[in-house]
Structures are given as C-alpha cells and as structure tokens.
C-alpha cells in the first residue's frame, strides 16, 4: 500500500501515488455508504476527537459520520465555547486531549499552520479539517474523487477555479492536488482576490470569466464570504455577480459536458445562479457531499493503519 503519511495536514506533502491509493479506497467506501447497512469496522475501538476552533456544520458532520460508519468512538469538542476562551493555549489544549489517548484528531482552526503546530505536540494521527487560508486537504480529495468519477480520469483535464482564491484554503489544496495529478488549472477572479505571485504555481490566471471558462471540463466555484463584500476587495455584491457569478450564459463558454462544483455553503445569486446549482445535469454539488464522507472514511482508515504499523511511543 502506498500511503505513508502519519498525519493528513495538507496536500503539499502527498505524492500522486498516495492520492490515488486514498481515492481508490474511497471508491470502496462509496459502495458501502450506498448499502442499507453502512457499517465497517476499520476504526473499531479507536477514539476520534473532532476539535473545531471555527464554526462548521458540514465538515464536522461529515467527519463524524465517517468515523461512526467505521466504528470509531467519536467525540465532538466545540472549542469556541471551551477552555480556549479561558486563556488556555492551543498547545495546552492539545496536550490535555493527548493525555486521553485519542487515535485520530480532526482539527479546524482559523490560523494557517495551527494544525501543523498541534500535530508536532501529540502522538496520534492528526487530520486537517481546514487551517486559516492554508489547506483543506479532505475537501480537495473529495473534489478529486467527484471529478474522477464524473470524468473517468483525474489527469489532463482543464479545470477552472473561480472566485475568492486569496482567502480560500480550498483553492490552495485543489491547486496543489490537481497540479500533482497533471491537469491544466485556470484561476478566475478579480485581482484583489488573487494571492500574490499565484502565477508561479503553474496555473493560468484570468480576470475575464468568459475567456477563462473557454473549453474547460470542470468549473469549481468558491464561496465569497460576506465580510469580503464591503467594498474592501470588490465594489459590491451585484457587480461581483455580474462579472464573476456563474450562470448559464457564462457556463456556455465551457465544454458542453463541463461539470459545476461548489464546496458549499453556497451564496445563491452571489457566486452562482440558483437554478444552475440545482441543475442535475451540470451540478455535482450533492455528489461532492456524498464523496466527502467516503474520502474522510478512507483518510482515517489509512492513517489508522499507518498508526498500527508503527510502534507507539510511551508518553510519561
């Protein structure tokens, strides 16, 4: 088996073979999830703790369900309401949890790199469920699985990622993953929402959406957060929708069989037309959610296997 990672902190340190291994296993879990009895025992007896320092409904539910379907004991910690507010540092919180011997720690944090820091201090497997503007690896993996199942392959595709690239960890993880799998990536958005020197990541950058969507196989839309719409980054919501909102007319520039993706939650009428989002012929947004559970089951399964394979250090 070619999946060597101890933690899943980002796509950056994964090889193409590791990505393929994970997606192959996720395919198996998609089959399991579609049966009436959805139980596996890959994580039986293991403890999974979800630590979300930032609000999340969808990702947290997806991780929780993934763990439970594989038999793990899952605990959710709402970190915003807990000891962090009492002045405890991230490291102390991590050490406290570590002492309870969890096997899998799923962490979301508002600061880039915070999950890496935490992973250094605990001796269980850590999964990054999104850190600041850095990475969101399971999102990129579920997007990849969706594309692979829809398009029959995950290489040599033209893929457009549109919207607020600058503040998006989803975009970063996707750029890294799709680049490693040898696809052509186009980034579309206003220059105020592009990270600096992003052209050096082996991507093509477009400010005109119609030009950028020309002949693409996949259109990935990103969520534009409300707080970016106040005139600081873009003039207004309606001008953004006019120039960068995905509707049937703009999608007409993409290939006829191009699929439309969105990591959710959507702002209908801001970055995507509501009717288009619901169009089952083009939109794969619901499939993405389904793939999310399978990919997270696969990720936790593989990390747990690697953990069993390495002798545990005894912490005093």
């Amino acid at each position: 088996m070619s999946f060597r990672a101890k933690h899943l902190l980002g796509i950056e340190h994964l090889g193409p073979d590791e990505i393929t291994t994970l997606l192959d296993l996720a395919d198996d879990y998609v089959r399991l999830n579609r049966q009436q009895i959805k139980h596996g025992d890959a994580l039986a007896g293991l403890t999974q703790i979800n630590m979300f320092f930032e609000n999340s409904t969808r990702t947290q539910a997806s991780f929780e369900l993934a763990g439970k379907r594989l038999g793990a004991d899952v605990m959710n910690m709402a970190m915003q309401a807990s000891s962090i507010k009492k002045g405890e540092t991230l490291i102390d919180t991590a050490m406290t949890l570590n002492a309870m011997h969890p096997d899998l720690l799923v962490v979301r944090h508002p600061h880039s790199g915070a999950v890496n820091l935490l992973a250094e201090k605990v001796n269980c497997a850590v999964l990054n469920a999104g850190d600041g503007k850095h990475e969101h690896p399971t999102q990129a993996l579920l997007d990849a699985l969706t594309i692979r199942r829809e398009k029959g392959r995950l290489h040599r595709l033209n893929i457009a990622i549109c919207g607020d690239i600058a503040h998006s960890r989803v975009a970063r993880s996707n750029i890294l993953l799709l680049g490693k799998m040898e696809n052509r990536i186009r980034l579309i958005g206003p220059p105020t929402l592009m990270p600096s020197q992003i052209d050096q990541f082996g991507v093509e950058v477009y400010e005109d959406m119609r030009e950028g969507l020309q002949d693409v196989d996949v259109v990935m839309m990103l969520r534009l957060q409300k707080e970016r719409m106040d005139g600081g980054f873009i003039p207004s919501e309606r001008e953004y929708y006019h120039r960068y909102g995905l509707d049937a007319e703009k999608l007409g520039f993409a290939k006829d069989d191009a699929i439309v993706m969105h990591p959710g939650p959507m702002n209908r009428g801001v970055e995507i037309d509501g009717t288009l989002a619901d169009d089952i012929n083009r939109s794969v947004i619901q499939e993405q959610v389904e793939m999310g559970v399978a990919v997270r089951m696969a990720a936790m399964d593989l990390l747990a296997r690697n953990q069993r394979a390495t002798p545990q250090e005894v912490m005093v």
Partner: peptide
C-alpha cells in the same frame, strides 16, 4: 512578505 511562499502558506 507577500509572494509565492506567503501564498502557499496562506499567511
């Protein structure tokens, strides 16, 4: 400092 590294790290 802004640039490729900052963009990669999301800082």
């Amino acid at each position: 400092t802004s640039g490729k590294f900052a963009s990669l790290r999301g800082l």
